[in-house]
């Protein structure tokens, strides 16, 4: 069994792809996280439909997350 937060720990300093509740996706390097799944991402790219935005560093509030896929 792999607990969710231990998989996230293994994804530190790696690229992750996030799906958010409003169907946005964020892709970036995971620099940190906490028990709420708040996250710090680096070199972040936001995709909303076919619109792509470069955001750099982002502090994401965990309650917006649907899923996290390590890349």
């Amino acid at each position: 069994m792999v607990m969710p937060l231990s998989l996230l720990e293994k994804s530190m300093n790696k690229k992750v792809s996030l799906l958010l509740k409003d169907s946005r996706t964020l892709e970036g390097t995971l620099m940190g996280f906490d028990d709420y799944l708040n996250m710090v991402l680096d070199d972040t790219e936001e995709t909303n439909g076919d619109q792509v935005k470069r955001l750099g560093t982002v502090i994401l509030r965990g309650n917006n997350v649907v899923s996290i896929a390590p890349k």
Partner: peptide
């Protein structure tokens, strides 16, 4: 399709 994924429980 993904090899592994974390799903947040509140969804």
């Amino acid at each position: 399709k993904v090899d592994s994924i974390i799903v947040r429980g509140d969804n």
